[in-house]
Design a protein around this nucleic acid. Sequence first.
DNA 1: TTTAATGCAAACATTTTGCACCCTG
DNA 2: CAGGGTGCAAAATGTTTGCATTAAA
Lengths: 143, 143
Amino acid sequence: MMTELEDLREYLHARKLKATRTRRLIFQEIITSSDGHPNASEIHERLTRKGEKVSLASVYRTLALLVKSGLVSQVDLGEDHSHYEPEGAKAGHGHLICLSCGAVTEFSDTQIHRLIGRIGKDHAFKLDKFSIQVFGYCGKCLR
Amino acid sequence: MMTELEDLREYLHARKLKATRTRRLIFQEIITSSDGHPNASEIHERLTRKGEKVSLASVYRTLALLVKSGLVSQVDLGEDHSHYEPEGAKAGHGHLICLSCGAVTEFSDTQIHRLIGRIGKDHAFKLDKFSIQVFGYCGKCLR
DNA sequence: TTTAATGCAAACATTTTGCACCCTG
DNA sequence: CAGGGTGCAAAATGTTTGCATTAAA
């Protein structure tokens, strides 16, 4: 569980950047987030509520750094702001987004990977990453 | 080609909304757009350049209406604003987005449809629509 | 002690909204 | 001519940036 923090430290040290308390707090907040996909202001609120004095500007600056590092990925859930999630081993997964309650469920599927890979080849396109949003209604809301 | 305009007229008439010149112009701009996925300000600029006096506010209001009607769909291409495209027969397709030149190529694949359908079932999720963005480098940029 | 990182506030970009006036039906 | 639609300007969001100050290394 602290492995990720080590990864961050390593990343920062390798490029002579500073492992500040602010950066650790923000990264930890993403890793330990119960809802899984917080946005910038949620991260800011949660830290503030915990008594940490971190500015929203730092949240944005740190998020940009984390995304660039590959430790965190930026996801679009169909809202007008970005969400962030730890980039775990389960790379390349999609999100099921409920249009009624907003619940977000992740899914991962090896067939999708293979299919996307083939589509890239068919179009002479060297792929870097992909993102899938499936909108609809979750089991709870259907009842 | 004028079929779409008829569809718009029909949609508006059915709910006692007005088929104004502004609405027709904006819808036509999306249908006939050469680049395929204009954003709000591109639509506004193009109409202005053609000598049409349409406000950006009306562009946004009309886009919202067109999306709700199902005649147009809103797409996310990884930028900080939305793009719009006609909702043709080829429903449910994805976009290949070049990280170098920004070119956007569409793809459609029946296997993806099937796969997404199955994923929905597996999660007791009634699906409405889906969206796929594949980021990478296009053939031109690889040379 | 050096230099990167932070907080704050102002700046930006995109989208939304209130209101007086205009046009379609 | 009634009611929805439009333009304009102001406001609301989400995100970025300049600068003086703080804190890692």
